[in-house]
Write a protein that binds this DNA or RNA. Structure first.
Length: 885
RNA sequence: GGGCGUGUAGCUCAGCGGAAGAGCAUCUCGUUUACACCGAGACGGUCGGGGGUUCGAUCCCCUCCGCGCCCA
């Protein structure tokens, strides 16, 4: 057996073995028959163009931990994978390829272009699925879905028709977020705001007493102004309301109107009104019957203004119009730079232009209310609860959702227009109308289809066994940053489409478990421009998937961000190696995993101590996983495995095993039992290394289908045993400290006489102390050169060890050691005495607390007198050196 | 501007009314037959500042300062 674990050699074949064995395939019949409880997760569908980034790695690790834990706990687990078609992103990818040959999608026509996108998807799309396998995702590949596949497309058409017939989908001319790069409308959540430097230009309209000054960051839009608005109570402008003013450059007369929504305290209190290019202005125009003049083409070039600026790009026009206004003496002030929030397209990063256009919308009011209610009444629990406010903030203030996109790649809107202006929405099983009718050219927002994901993937609108067994899903795991993207959409559609027997909406998930962002090692957000993006696959190659998973799990505190760095992944790799070596040792010493429950008769204190700690770990791990506390669960397992099992128990076990006999046999069983249980507990976190070690240790088929451990039913109270082992640890640690201070090499054995063990209740544990502290029995000619006294937590309870170093001791080092201990004890005594001298404390504090402080004071006093005596003895006996050997 | 978080050892984070914790980093010693991807030991913190409540505050309240996120 090698001394180091090599993840690269085992991970890929191990994963393939799991898939081939069918461990991840869900069987709804076992749920419907009542044999097993269901546990289901739908994977928030990644983008078909995407690659696994470290945020996915965290998300997937959490889901996989839950899936594997529930599978081992005897639930029927469905973890359903798939991808979304990512309308804009995917179309952009293929259009970029065409652009290399100087072609556009229009050169091919709609049908041919869409075929090219499918070709691309077949060849290079979905790389992320292979990357999920590397990470170890235990998803049911037999149920993989794609938002644009046949079944899901039928689901989209079905729900569209239902919403349309219910009056929840409508078409209207509205101001929408328009991306001049992608040439499509966007929904609110596809717009990202950033504080960008721009300029705030103040322009004077009119002259003399009738002059009115407005400020804007988009000077070119003045060409489309159709009014000036002021607040009705604003006395500064009262005399102007109802009059008109000449629009500079254009020469058009525009009215001055009074509108409640103008903020009189902002700027000059007057605003220019450009109805076709600003949502607020559009509202004002509707209230005052103002015309809306579209002055920008879809590509954001000036158009239809009748000025020399027609044809200019918006940013060129911004400069040119300002210069012309300056020439006309209309510029009164400029603030440069002026930092303000600017919306960018989340796909292309182009500055989004508010633009009046005819689009399809979902009327969200009733849907959003349902989505909020389901969370408020606990049908869906948001975890951690402090993030629920964020969810409510969003669903309570949602605007109607723009669902049409001017793209070709996606679900085409199933609405047809007749020769006489008729409109007909076509359901999934209906024939489209014939001659003379044309279908709406637009497609639906990708999230319209991903909103159906929790049930469309299970076969909806058919009432399949999968749906019956696994909907509502148990938990949705996702980052708080996309709470709006996934959760709100899926909640709205799930509650609308899925109903229980009473016709009540059925929530898509029982729990929404939110995690934070993965940041770089200094806590900064990862970004391409900063160059601090980490590639989880590179880390998987270097350190193994288990190491990446364990690092992410260990940092995953609910709802909060985590930092990650390569050296921490290396630490997790080291942990996997530690497990490997512990198992290696256990195998070499002949550890056996008991087939039934462990026989707890005749066990040593060390055995009972580790079993007690193991039981606590089983209990806490199970509880913490149920509460999505991945960080604490991982940390607890790490501490148990490394600091208790490896650092102490294995050393105790060596003493017993090397002694041979019956005790050795029992220890081998305990070793096997603890390791078997530990590997099971760790399997959801680090599936590959645990699988490798467990199958080799036990000869079992697979940990994937092994049974999740339960804490011993009649667990004995190990408090006394724990106290004894703690004392042993204290003795060993103090002796090691003395040795280190005296410069005695760890491997060097030194003779020593121990007294007081029996009084401390440690009579049977001398062997452990001697072996771990590397001290031997005193032999002939034994001469103590130093005495170490170790206090064991109670005043007067002291074990003394006389050590024969067979050389002079380093008196200065020993003095320093004692002085340090003395100072600590004195500080302790000072604090305790002060408290006890305070009658307010002794009167009001609980008796148990007062007693505890009294005990501490006594212990400190005892320590002080002991340390003082020893220091005095040192000073008297050896002022210049040590005692001759 | 509104809201939500957050500030604890050099770094990343737990703890959140009764003796300051972990991992990593640093320093010293060490090839002792599971492991140098290791072992043993050590160093390191007026728990952002200031008030208040309490017998007692890192923990509760107020306030100020710093940082982050979301929404306008």
């Amino acid at each position: 057996m090698p001394t180091q674990y090599d993840p690269a050699a085992v991970e890929v074949p191990t994963y393939q073995r799991w898939v081939d064995a069918g461990y991840f395939t869900a069987d709804p019949s076992r749920v419907l028959s009542g044999e097993r409880k269901p546990f289901s997760i739908v994977l928030p569908p990644p983008n078909v163009t995407g690659n696994l980034h470290v945020g996915h790695a965290l998300d997937h690790t959490m889901m996989d931990i839950l899936a594997r834990w529930h599978r081992m706990s005897g639930d029927e687990v469905l973890w359903l994978p798939g991808m979304d078609h990512a309308g804009i992103a995917t179309q952009n990818v293929v259009e970029k390829q065409l652009a290399v040959d100087g072609k556009t999608r229009h050169d091919f026509g709609r049908e041919l272009f869409v075929q090219k996108v499918w070709d691309w998807k077949a060849e290079s799309g979905g790389a992320i699925l292979g990357q999920m396998k590397r990470l170890g995702d235990s998803v049911d590949w037999s149920r993989e879905r794609f938002t644009l596949d046949e079944g899901l497309s039928a689901a989209v058409q079905t729900i569209f028709k239902r919403l349309y017939d219910d009056g929840l989908i409508y078409r209207a001319n509205r101001i929408t977020n328009w991306c001049p790069g992608c040439l499509t409308a966007l929904s609110d959540i596809e717009v990202e705001h950033s504080d960008d430097p721009g300029e705030l230009v103040s322009i004077r309209y009119g002259d003399g007493e009738d002059a009115i000054i407005v400020a804007t960051t988009r000077v070119e839009t003045m060409l489309g102004d159709t009014a000036i608005a002021v607040h009705p109570d604003d006395e500064r402008y009262a005399h102007l309301v109802g009059t008109t003013v000449t629009l500079p450059i254009v020469g058009r007369q525009i009215p001055i109107v009074a509108d409640e929504h103008v903020d009189p305290s902002f700027g000059t209190g007057a605003v220019k009104v450009t109805p076709a290019h600003d949502p607020n202005d559009f509202e004002i125009s509707r209230r005052h019957n103002l015309p809306a003049l579209t002055i920008l083409t879809p590509e954001a070039r000036i158009t239809d203004t009748g000025t020399v600026f027609d044809g200019l790009d918006r940013f060129e026009a911004r400069v040119a119009v300002k210069e012309e206004l300056r020439r006309l003496g209309r510029i009164v002030a400029e603030k440069i730079p002026y930092i303000h929030a600017v919306g960018h397209c989340s796909r292309s990063d182009d500055v989004v232009e508010p633009r009046l256009s005819l689009q399809w919308f979902v009327k969200v009011e009733s849907l959003a209310k349902e989505a909020a209610d389901a969370a408020r009444d606990g049908r869906t629990v948001i975890h951690p609860p402090e993030l629920a406010a964020r969810y409510f903030d969003w669903v309570d203030n949602m605007h109607d959702w723009t669902i049409s996109r001017q793209l070709w790649w996606g679900h085409r809107i199933p609405v047809w227009y007749g020769p006489d202006g008729e409109t007909r929405c076509v359901g999934p099983n209906e024939e489209p109308p014939g001659e003379g009718w044309t279908q709406d050219p637009d497609v639906l927002d990708t999230w319209f289809s991903s909103g159906l994901w929790p049930f469309s993937t299970m076969g909806w609108p058919e009432n399949t066994d999968t749906l019956k067994a696994f909907y509502p899903t148990s938990v949705l795991v996702t980052g708080y940053d996309i709470l709006f993207f996934w959760v709100a959409r899926m909640m709205m559609f799930g509650l609308y489409a899925m109903r229980d027997e009473d016709g009540r909406g059925l929530q898509p998930f029982d729990v929404v478990a939110l995690h934070g962002l993965v940041r770089d090692e200094r806590g900064r957000k990862m970004s391409k421009s900063r160059g601090n993006v980490v590639d989880p696959l590179a880390w998987i190659e270097t350190y193994g998937a288990d190491a990446v998973r364990f690092t992410l799990a260990r940092g995953a505190n609910p709802g909060s961000d985590q930092a990650i760095a390569a050296e921490w992944v290396a630490g997790s790799r080291n942990f996997c190696s530690k497990l490997f070596n512990a198992t290696r040792f256990a195998s070499m010493t002949g550890a056996v995993v008991p087939t039934g429950p462990l026989d707890r008769e005749g066990l040593t204190d060390a055995d009972r101590w580790i079993l007690g700690a193991l039981d606590r770990t089983v209990r806490s791990t199970t509880t913490l996983l149920g509460d999505f506390q991945f960080a604490k669960a991982s940390e607890g397992l790490y501490q148990f495995a490394w600091n208790e099992f490896c650092d102490w128990y294995l050393e105790f076990a060596k003493v017993e095993v090397y002694a041979g006999g019956e005790g050795a046999e029992r220890t081998r069983q305990v070793l096997g039992y603890v390791l078997d249980t530990l590997l099971k507990l760790l399997h959801p976190f680090v599936p590959f290394v645990t699988e490798t070690l467990w199958t080799s240790l036990t000869g079992g088929e697979s940990l994937v289908i092994a049974e999740w451990p339960e804490a011993a039913a009649n667990q004995e109270d190990t408090a006394e045993v724990d106290a004894r082992i703690e004392k042993v640890q204290k003795l060993v640690t103090e002796l090691r400290r003395f040795r280190a201070d005296q410069g005695v090499r760890p491997s060097q054995k030194v003779p020593a006489r121990i007294t007081g063990l029996e009084a401390a209740g440690l009579a049977g544990l001398e062997g452990l102390v001697r072996n771990l502290a590397r001290i031997t029995e005193p032999e002939e000619g034994f001469q103590s050169s130093a005495e170490v006294e170790v206090g064991l937590g109670t005043a007067g309870l002291v074990v003394s060890i006389e050590i024969d170093l067979s050389t002079t001791i380093d008196v200065e080092a020993e003095k320093a050691r004692l002085a340090k201990d003395l100072a600590a004890a004195q500080k302790e005594l000072g604090l305790a005495t002060a408290k006890l001298g305070n009658t307010a404390f002794t009167d009001k504090a609980p008796a148990a607390v007062v007693d505890k402080i009294k005990a501490r004071a006594e212990l400190a006093e005892a320590d002080i007198s002991r340390f003082t005596a020893r220091l005095e003895a040192l000073a008297a006996s050896a002022p210049t050196g040590g005692t001759p050997a």
